[in-house]
Amino acid sequence: MNDISSKERQILMTMRKVLANIIKDTTPEHKDMKHPLSDVTIDQVRNCLGMISARERELADKAGAAVEKPYFTDEKRTADVVSIDSIKPGTKK
Rank of each mutant, 00 (worst) to 15 (best):
I11P: 06
K24E: 15
D61E: 10
K69M: 04
D32E: 15
R77E: 10
L49G: 01
V81G: 02
L37Q: 01
K88N: 04
C48W: 15
S38H: 03
L19W: 04
A54C: 09
K92C: 05
L49F: 04
P89T: 06
V67I: 08
D25K: 05
V67F: 08
P28H: 13
R57W: 12
A79C: 03
T14Y: 14
R55S: 01
I23W: 07
V82C: 04
L12W: 00
H35M: 02
A79Y: 06
D61R: 09
L49Y: 05
H35K: 01
M51G: 05
L19C: 01
M15I: 09
T78V: 11
E8C: 05
K62A: 09
G50P: 06
R46M: 06
T41N: 06
V18S: 14
K31N: 13
A65T: 04
D39S: 03
A63S: 01
A63K: 05
T27Q: 08
T41H: 09
N47E: 08
P36V: 00
A20D: 12
L59Q: 02
S53A: 03
R9G: 03
R16I: 02
A20I: 10
I23R: 05
R46L: 07
K69N: 01
E8D: 10
K31C: 14
I52S: 03
A60T: 06
C48I: 11
H30T: 14
V82L: 10
I42A: 02
A66Q: 01
P36A: 00
N21A: 15
A60L: 08
K93G: 06
K62S: 04
R46I: 08
E75K: 10
I87N: 06
L12P: 00
D61N: 09
Q44N: 03
Q44G: 02
K24G: 04
E68W: 11
R55E: 00
V82A: 03
H30I: 14
P36E: 00
Q10A: 07
E58G: 05
V45I: 15
I42F: 06
I23M: 07
K34H: 13
K76F: 13
L19V: 02
A54W: 13
P70W: 11
A20Y: 14
S5E: 07
K92Y: 11
V40T: 07
D3A: 08
D3H: 08
I22V: 14
I87F: 14
I42M: 10
A20N: 12
D39P: 00
R55I: 00
A20H: 11
V81P: 01
F72I: 12
S86Y: 02
P28S: 12
R55G: 01
S53G: 00
T26D: 11
F72S: 13
A66I: 02
D43Y: 09
P70R: 10
E68P: 04
R55A: 00
S38F: 05
G50S: 11
M15C: 11
P28V: 07
A63T: 02
K69E: 04
K88Y: 07
I22P: 04
A60M: 08
V18T: 12
T91A: 11
I84P: 00
T78F: 13
F72A: 15
T26C: 10
M1Y: 15
E8V: 07
P89I: 08
R9N: 04
S83V: 03
D32M: 15
Q44V: 03
K76P: 08
S5W: 07
K7R: 03
K7E: 03
K31T: 14
M1N: 11
